[in-house]
Nucleic acid binder design. Structure first.
Lengths: 220, 220
DNA sequence: TAATTGATTTAGGGCTGTCTAAAAATAATA
DNA sequence: TATTATTTTTAGACAGCCCTAAATCAATTA
């Protein structure tokens, strides 16, 4: 049975996220940026994770996460997200306050604790950010996606993809401040032209035509 | 502001308990036994705690905890006991399962977390073992004591003292399996002679006359 | 293809917290 | 008091995790 130190868990979790996002392999610098540690420290850690076979690591050529690595990363992610639910739902933390604390809590090693917490929270399927919570076997229920222009007034979600991925469209999104991963809320809908006003990351309000909104996929 | 590492917190907590129990100073070996680490490791840690002025440390002569040290120890104890309450009351852990887990949880550094947890639990004054939970200023409310023969059927508590401390009485208690610190529950009360049946440490059931029970102080 | 640039790794060091083995101080006993 | 026994401390080592500085490798450019 492979066991990871808290630091190793954190690295593996970061690597998992990087693997999901980008298509190709993950580089030392990617991990360094994500973890906010120096590349030199990352090299050392990658060697260790390679020895534990949770990643496949070739010096100078980056890495790929292994199946075993994914499983372990999902365990950590599960714990992290369950604690986030607890902090927000039970202890009334706001979204932005939870991350660090959940991070520390998620390193407490007790399988029973995780199971009981899951049960206590009513086996939630998604965390407060809308990210799915893996079950104890690492399975994730894929969240259904909806087109942004079909969302109801007041509903929230996260931009996960675009139908039109032309550079022009992406540049436009970039310009107005929308991006893959952005948390959005529908603030207003105009009936006659189908345009919408959405709030991005609880900060910036932007207007969108029906055409634009109809090309954005949102996870609700 | 003094900050302690998790290990330092653990040592200080142990030292606080040792200081409360025995009257005189605390020795390196005492701490070693309590912490289950080698005396050599303890020496090193005592030097560090001495430098941080949470204890007063004289080489070869043991130590005394300082006022500042007591305050910090009580903070840690507060967190530990709040988590114990959470684990037992909300997550349905049993008494014997909670300690290690609460220990890890109590090292999560977030003042807000502790406050919100306290609030969520309804500001409990005692942990599941009956030990008092310090408030955020480190104050402990002394728990009221009751005579064992005055407890209601089904109530639980911990034996904390005896009114009659004659050797004969103590020998008797010892014989039947009651002792200072024992967790008890009143299982039966006989009206006509005032005798009671109590369950000790969730294991052993013993009978007591009214005279005996009337000499035992219980913290409920 | 050769030189330069940028990414990555290695080398060496610091800090924490543990250990074992050996030395030193104190306490107990003859 | 002198010797022995016990307690405590020091010395040196190791693992984890981070750093900086220097070396190495790979990719790009001239």
């Amino acid at each position: 049975m492979i066991t990871l130190t808290p630091a190793e868990e954190n690295y593996l979790k970061a690597i998992y996220h990087l693997s999901e996002g980008g298509k190709k392999g993950v580089s030392t610098n990617d991990v360094s940026a994500e973890m906010k540690t120096k590349p030199a420290s990352v090299s050392d850690m990658l060697r260790k994770l390679g020895e534990k076979e949770v990643i496949e690591y070739r010096k100078y050529y980056g890495l790929h996460i292994t199946e075993e690595g994914k499983k372990l990363a999902l365990q950590t992610i599960r714990k992290h997200r369950l604690w986030e639910v607890f902090l927000v739902e039970k202890l009334k933390f706001s979204w932005d306050e939870v991350h660090e604390v959940a991070d520390e809590l998620s390193h407490v090693k007790s399988r029973v604790l995780t199971q009981r917490l899951d049960e206590y929270l009513g086996f939630p399927k998604f965390d407060p950010h809308g990210d799915p919570i893996p079950d104890e076997y690492g399975d994730i229920r894929a969240r259904p996606r909806q087109l942004l222009n079909e969302l109801d007034l007041g509903s929230t979600g996260q931009i996960v993809a675009v139908k039109d991925s032309s550079p022009a469209f992406l540049r436009y999104l970039d310009k107005v401040g929308a991006y893959i991963g952005a948390r959005i809320k529908v603030m207003d809908k105009t009936e006659f032209d189908g345009s919408v006003e959405i709030l991005v990351d609880n900060k910036k309000s932007i207007f969108m035509s029906k055409d634009v909104a109809g090309n954005i996929l949102v996870m609700v």
